[in-house]
Design a binder for these strands. Sequence first.
DNA 1: TGATAATAAATTGCATACAATTTAAACAAA
DNA 2: TTTGTTTAAATTGTATGCAATTTATTATCA
Lengths: 147, 147
Amino acid sequence: MNEKDELLKLENQLCFAFYACSREITKLYRPILSELDLTYTQYITMLALWEKDGVTVKDLGARLLLDSGTLTPLLKKLEAMQLITRDRDKADERNLVIRVTEHGAKLKEKAKCVPAQLGEQMNIPIEEVNAIRDQIQNLLIKLEPTL
Amino acid sequence: MNEKDELLKLENQLCFAFYACSREITKLYRPILSELDLTYTQYITMLALWEKDGVTVKDLGARLLLDSGTLTPLLKKLEAMQLITRDRDKADERNLVIRVTEHGAKLKEKAKCVPAQLGEQMNIPIEEVNAIRDQIQNLLIKLEPTL
DNA sequence: TGATAATAAATTGCATACAATTTAAACAAA
DNA sequence: TTTGTTTAAATTGTATGCAATTTATTATCA
């Protein structure tokens, strides 16, 4: 096995570690989020909107690194669930303004126990988790300076 | 803003860091892999098979943490591209044995420059990348001990 | 002002992910 | 052996992701 073969080993890929770990973490969320009737992407989207709503699809996409192809159907779903509203901006009809409804705001209260529930599932010291998160965020900013 | 609001901020989520970073890294691969006519998941699958073929769908799924719902159509695609073969195990017809074809083996030679190309794209010191990878693999093993 | 360019969402098409179910084969036990 | 159980893939249905295109609206400039 030469040096270049070594480079192609799955376990040496940064990408596979991220890819697999990301999916494993999502898997931990699934049963917890099902109690809120949210998928993982819907949850991430609601987190962004709970922090700041009255934003456009473009704004939201910049925050979540998702485009309208992903967000449009997802936001229509959240609208159907009455968690958000989707209204054209009167001043510029190209913009769609997303706002959290009262029902959506109520869900935030329910969501507040999600991080703790996930913490239990992971069974890893919080300091360790925070340290890894900070490192990954550093990397993310290097990869996507606009964030 | 109280403590629980803080916990729901997007930037404090380990999951979002992983989710976003994983997609950003995949994005870096896309133009490089398009020269091999492979998607990211197809590439990961070929990496696993170049390391060890003659495996079943189940084996491969355990390695990649993917199920037959994802792998079956993906492997059919790779078969159509003549990179692999899919044959029932004569000794136990339930098993489907996946093997890399000659054409598939040739592609490995072409793939050997992918890691270096990606390294250029990332523009981050290799030691730093390796350190993060090792940490994430540690976490992955805690989340999925079977790996 | 009228044509052109730029912008924001939406749409289309393809490729995952994954839960749940189905199908086919092998195993187990009465 | 025959019936019930287990196992491996395949299938079905839903929800992303994302490139490429389309549509609608606004901005620009000749």
